[in-house]
Design a protein around this nucleic acid. Structure first.
Length: 161
DNA sequence: GCCAACGTTGGC
DNA sequence: GCCAACGTTGGC
């Protein structure tokens, strides 16, 4: 199992929105950055994902999601009416991919960005890198464990398949 | 609202 | 291929 982190502005799609979605699941459409897309494509079923609220009050990791469907073409790239339409993308070789994510558990206690800074073991966490703008990024097993502990989530829940 | 850090675009 | 201009992200 691999670990990841996705960002979302709660005003756009919050963790609660995911938890309240049909089957607690949504297609993670709209990623339009090549590095982030490549991470989406590297996800496999069962991978665990931190859900981070950006441009939020407070900015924080607020819960855990799981990859329930591996990368497939993002339909919004072909939708002219969508703000995410990409006229350069070809039907027979789509540029952008999406995965399906399902809500696993909200953190008992969200872990804020401020709090994460300075936690031993998280020095190399991509989320904390100055100027980091990736909306999908890998998380190491060590980082995963540390953040779950801060959040008050047991390993049995955070890693259960 | 400001601005640093990026990624992308397009002129050359 | 270079790089300046531009648009976006996202913390503060």
């Amino acid at each position: 199992m691999k670990y990841w982190l996705v960002k979302s502005e709660p005003s756009s799609f919050s963790y609660d929105d995911l938890a309240n979605a049909p089957e607690r699941t949504t297609s993670w459409e709209g990623v339009r950055n090549y590095a982030a897309r490549n991470f989406l494509r590297a996800m496999t079923r069962g991978d665990r994902v931190f859900y981070y609220h950006s441009n939020a009050e407070p900015n924080a990791i607020v819960g855990i999601a799981e990859v329930v469907r591996e990368a497939y073409p993002d339909a919004s790239q072909f939708d002219r009416k969508s703000g995410m339409h990409d006229p350069k993308s070809k039907r027979d070789s789509p540029t952008w991919s999406t995965v399906d994510l399902t809500a696993v558990t909200a953190f008992p206690r969200p872990v804020t960005l401020t709090e994460l800074r300075g936690v031993p073991g998280l020095e190399k966490m991509e989320l904390l890198r100055k100027g980091s703008r990736l909306s999908v990024m890998p998380v190491s097993a060590g980082e995963w464990r540390i953040v779950c502990k801060l959040a008050g989530v047991s390993a049995a829940i955070s890693d259960a398949g």
